[in-house]
Write a protein that binds this DNA or RNA. Structure first.
Lengths: 142, 142
DNA sequence: CTTGCTCCTGTAGTGGCTACAGGAAGTAGA
DNA sequence: TCTACTTCCTGTAGCCACTACAGGAGCAAG
């Protein structure tokens, strides 16, 4: 049995975040000591680690909850998981594309800037009415 | 003079967002009609458009506020703008790198998944204790 | 017994919006 | 002129996934 500090260390989840996950019902409530302190089993910690890894992979909490319920069922979950992972991959690819376009737009804009110029051509271009709106326009907010 | 609906159309900024920008002091308060409706000049709309384009380029509001104050001064701003744009580019590059690593990790994980398998190897790998933590571990949250 | 660490609860703040309720102003047609 | 409809108003709450902090309590070592 581990207190929340150790659980945090072992799972890589911030203590405050652990309590937040508990409040939100993302992970089950742990046991308590006589003094009222949270006590985590290795299983609890494995779950926390799982959540953190999924978050690191960019999955939103809602998807992670589905994952957790699928691991609980432990039954024909693989297809569903794969589908969700693939959908997530599509989103990641879209984000990468957006960022690459954005990088190009920014490089173009700032390349006209020279130290010491009175008025900044980059800001002027962004202020102008006739300026063709950049890549982000077509692909939504980032 | 344009009402908020037209200003929204012409600038590409959502009406509610325009009001939010006003509340937060990001753009100056517009004039009002006798009935109390906001009235925007073309200058006001240019500012809104500027903010939107900067947001599309991924700049945070705080930086955009600096940009706006620099355009107001209109004096030796170019060097500062270029520096901020370059810092922003560094951040964008870091995000791209993270996402590319993340994509690889996800591809690796889901490639082991096969429709119909009882237990999902991807979820098991993420739950496991000895699993080498992925790329996101070294480069922080996304 | 005291010091200092860990932990507790509860609340508020972050960024950048978005949504909604309940009402007022303005406009177009009958 | 009346009515129906649209646009706009203010104010507040919600979104996501945390993070920070206040004010106190438990607990272990010296």
């Amino acid at each position: 049995m581990f207190t929340i500090g150790k659980a945090s260390e072992q799972s890589g989840v911030n203590m405050e975040t652990i309590r937040y996950y508990e409040r939100e019902g993302i992970v089950p409530k742990p046991g308590r000591s006589e003094g009222g302190r949270r006590l985590y089993t290795s299983d609890d910690i494995a779950k926390l680690r799982f959540v953190r890894r999924c978050r690191d992979l960019g999955f939103p909490i809602s998807i992670i909850q589905t994952f957790l319920s699928l691991t609980a069922l432990n039954d024909r979950s693989c297809g569903e998981v794969k589908t969700m992972a693939e959908n997530h991959l599509v989103e990641i690819n879209a984000k990468i594309e957006n960022l690459v376009r954005l990088r190009e737009a920014l490089l173009n804009l700032s390349s006209n800037c020279e130290e010491g110029t009175a008025a900044c051509p980059m800001l002027e271009a962004l202020m102008k009415d006739g300026f063709a709106d950049g890549p982000a326009e077509q692909c939504g907010r980032l």
